[in-house]
């Protein structure tokens, strides 16, 4: 039954033990005890690959499965997406098809469907990849993250939680339990656009999310354009003041504000051109949806 010795599925150099704590508090206590030797496991679609590549070598994996974090809760004024909710569940959620459609649009382009059936919202956030597709949408929604630790739960704006590539404000023993955001007013819209080298199964070259509220706020967030996902407050304020007349200028401001890198997927220069074009396009799409009552 065994294959040849050169098979690439050889076990990683260092194994780990697998833990299924019975409660969030037990998970937190065990993580505290083990410190750097432990990692929480959500879907594992990134972490398992990193372990197999030898980039991280935790001695303990603490599963967050079965702890009640896999629900999308709708309250009177807000949504709370549990950390273990899959991208597939976001894509298919009935509440995310109209003025929150950017959530479904972003989750729909995370990997292929096999990945979306396992990969989680919490993992997408905590991983702190600047190219995470869902994060710009959540930033555009002024989302808040809930962090449960040794002394209960603390909350903070997602914008403050994200520090830079791979770094967040999360303490090692803390579990991101949910991400929350207000339900938007009826006359509002969101839109998400992603540029990649192919239409599917691709890491973003640039991704952009926007939210427009008629007579109210404008939000613009951009992924894969800096060391973390960023908002562009200057462009938002301009759109709030001048409306559709400022959409193109908002794109230019956004392109100036970001600091993309040259890499295998695209040059920094091309990324800036994409930011200008996609920001304008996302704002136009939002305005059109509000206008047509699709929001």
């Amino acid at each position: 039954m065994s294959l040849n010795a050169s098979s690439r599925s050889a076990p990683p150099a260092m194994s780990f033990s697998f833990h299924r704590p019975g409660s969030l508090d037990a998970a937190i206590a065990f993580a505290r005890e083990q410190g750097d030797a432990a990692r929480f496991l959500a879907g594992g679609t990134d972490l398992i690959i990193q372990i197999n590549r030898g980039r991280v070598a935790p001695r303990h994996l603490i599963s967050l499965d079965g702890l009640g974090l896999d629900r999308i809760d709708e309250a009177a004024t807000e949504y709370a997406i549990g950390a273990m909710v899959t991208h597939d569940a976001v894509v298919n959620h009935p509440g995310f098809q109209t003025n929150l459609v950017a959530l479904a649009q972003a989750s729909a382009v995370v990997g292929g469907r096999q990945v979306r059936n396992i990969a989680t919202v919490g993992g997408n956030i905590v991983n702190a990849s600047p190219a995470a597709d869902l994060v710009p949408v959540l930033l555009a929604l002024d989302a808040t993250v809930d962090l449960r630790g040794l002394n209960g739960t603390r909350s903070m704006p997602l914008d403050r939680f994200l520090v830079e590539r791979g770094r967040t404000e999360r303490r090692p023993e803390e579990i991101l339990t949910a991400v929350r955001f207000d339900k938007p007013p009826a006359a509002s819209a969101t839109w998400f656009l992603k540029a990649g080298r192919r239409k599917a199964m691709e890491i973003s070259v640039i991704c952009v999310a926007a939210q427009l509220v008629r007579g109210g706020k404008a939000r613009i967030a951009i992924g894969a354009a800096a060391s973390r996902t960023v908002r562009v407050p200057d462009a938002e304020v301009l759109v709030e003041r001048q409306g559709a007349a400022a959409f193109r200028e908002a794109g230019r401001i956004a392109a100036d504000a970001v600091a993309p890198i040259d890499d295998v997927r695209a040059s920094a220069r091309y990324r800036k051109l994409l930011v200008a074009a996609l920001v304008e396009r996302a704002l136009v799409a939002c305005a059109g949806r509000i206008e047509r009552g699709e929001a």
């Binding site: 499965d65 096999q114 396992i118």
Partner: peptide, 24 residues
Amino acid sequence: AECGVCTVLLDGKAVNSCILLAEQ
């Protein structure tokens, strides 16, 4: 999880068995 040849169904949903721990 790039190529999909390892796809199986987990509770009816397609997943990549190469990066899913058996424990999961």
